[in-house]
Design a protein around this nucleic acid. Structure first.
Lengths: 331, 331
DNA sequence: TTTAGCACTCTCAACCTTTAAGTGCTAGCA
DNA sequence: TGCTAGCACTTAAAGGTTGAGAGTGCTAAA
């Protein structure tokens, strides 16, 4: 059922006002805050209708109305239709891009920091697998005490791995060359899936370095299952001032539970920005988006907060950031 | 002024009980909870005396007493005298030790995690400079796009650095050999301070790789000024249940302020475990300790909480962890 | 030095009252 | 049919009162 123009206007204004002031919306405040030329009685009828449709609810008979989860959702949908840029400091995003010499971990942490600071809400970035990273460079370096450090350059920064194996300088060089020759330009997923085949096809030339390569692949498989989670806690102290203790507690609990964060950040659809509004089932609201590079999804980013939070600001900040990242070519 | 045995007993019991139950101590509860054979009236006199000395205070005329900051401090001092081990999972500490292949960052994060989980309080580890790390191994690796990755093995894990310079394979090998020859076994501080001298004394042999070495030292100087801070938020949601909203907010604010955390973690004395009790000046309590390796201080670790927190449990957990680490020889 | 006894103080919870805000409803009007 | 004015009704919030209960300080006696 589609809402009349006036109902839409009233509902959106109500949600925004409630997000801002946290005080229930009354027929009087609607009259003051909109340019609608009608009496409070008329507005009361409208509010009554919106309540009957499930968008608003009264906390008690004579105390104004507050948005329901459904009301928030309606607002958020309208919002995403006309999502526009925001005042995120684009400079920061750009400097991030130029610093691609960093490790993936640093880059992820930097993205979380930028969004966290721009929105003043807790922000989580999740890299849930390295399959889609594109390989650019390999370096295997023998270290003291039978260890080998593997340095893998990708289109999204470097990743490191420590292997507990004994290998000679020459074996490392051979392995480096072998990997560079066959897998440069491919994704990590491709390499892990196809390495066996490559080795089968050249059983003649297999030598000592094969052991090194196998160990690396084993390591990567393990690494792939681990999730790289970066959590920023911007504004979590502020939650206590802005929200009921109960709501704040819910958000803080979620932030401490890494499994739940992973679940939350898993993207449902193929769209861009997705919003989940807290209701009886989910204890906090999330605005999340995929991070892509060269068209492949690498990670997802989510801003976590209570039901009453600044969806508009967050969504537009996220949009700016992920658009910048998505535009970025993995040189 | 020294307290009588009985006063000591009463005060310590009062603090412990208040930490546990968060309800004011009355003459009745003291009688119930201690084995002292005297009447409540006598105990009232004692409580009165302790109040006059500043260890306890009444919130209102007839409502029992709670410890003052001074009272907590007295308790904590007594506590540290007889600090004993706890049920921290020593296995975890040991597995940490065996995983010295990791990077310093990973090790620091692991220490914070162990203590955070053992105490259920927010825990911060601060590495405020790399001067005292002992150098074991160098590897300079030329990468694509005019970059050089520097891998420095120390007695406390590896540190990485990315240099934005152009260098040949041979220059990197030369630099690696040069550094290994002169500084293996020394501290990073020594190397940074003395490198100029070494170079002066051998102006004849200075060659292309000098540029690489200089760039590395510059980088290390910069790195040395940065502080490596790892913050775990264990139990920060629980704070909201256990404490007044105000106290919880204070702790959460501190956790968000990296500068303040650095200040807090700076050790005052030369002792082992230090405890600061929250009072008018400091908004939260801290139990902190130095992390040493081979007798040199590398970092400090602190557990942050409200005034009313489990000092005994935290102090003993910290003691176990830092003793294990201090015993550790940086092979 | 300790104890028993007692008057005193203060919080807390329950209860009531008043006030002001905001509503739903109805009847009348465009 | 939609809008409006008016009015009775509801409710939360704030303020005040009360009684009960817990715990104290003080005093006099052991």
């Amino acid at each position: 059922m589609e809402l009349s123009d006036r109902k839409q206007k009233i509902l959106c204004m109500a949600v925004e006002e409630y997000i801002r002031e946290c005080s229930p919306i009354t027929s009087g405040s609607v009259k003051d805050l909109t340019s609608l030329n009608c009496s409070t009685a008329t507005l009361r009828n409208e509010l009554n209708a919106l309540e009957a449709m499930g968008y608003l609810k009264q906390l008690h008979t004579s105390g104004g109305r507050v948005p329901t989860a459904q009301g928030y959702r309606y607002y958020v949908e309208k919002l995403l239709e006309k999502a526009n840029g925001s005042d995120v400091e684009l400079d920061k995003v750009k400097s991030l891009i130029s610093s691609r010499t960093s490790s993936l971990t640093e880059i992820v942490s930097e993205i979380a920091k930028i969004v966290g600071e721009a929105t003043s809400y807790p922000t989580v970035v999740l890299v849930d697998g390295y399959e889609n990273l594109v390989l650019k460079e390999f370096k295997l370096i023998p270290l003291l005490q039978d260890k080998v450090m593997v340095l893998i350059g990708t289109n999204a920064g470097y990743i490191y791995q420590n292997l507990e194996i004994k290998a000679t300088e020459q074996e490392c060089v051979d392995a480096t060359n072998y990997l560079t020759k066959h897998f440069s330009g491919e994704t990590i997923g491709f390499m892990v899936d196809n390495i066996a085949e490559y080795q089968d096809g050249m059983s003649g030339e297999i030598s000592a370095f094969q052991m090194v390569v196998n160990s690396l692949i084993e390591g990567l498989k393990k690494l792939n299952k681990q999730k790289l989670l970066n959590v920023r806690r911007e504004g979590s102290a502020k939650l206590l001032s802005d929200q009921s203790v109960d709501d704040a507690k819910k958000v803080l609990s979620v932030l401490e539970d890494e499994d739940e964060l992973s679940n939350i950040l898993t993207l449902e659809g193929k769209g861009d920005i997705e919003v989940t509004v807290a209701d009886e089932d989910s204890s906090c609201s999330v605005v999340k988006a995929p991070i892509r590079l060269d068209g492949r999804q690498l990670a997802s980013i989510g801003v976590i907060g209570p039901q009453r939070m600044d969806y508009a600001g967050i969504a537009s900040a996220l949009k700016v950031v992920i658009d910048s990242l998505n535009d970025l070519k993995g040189e």
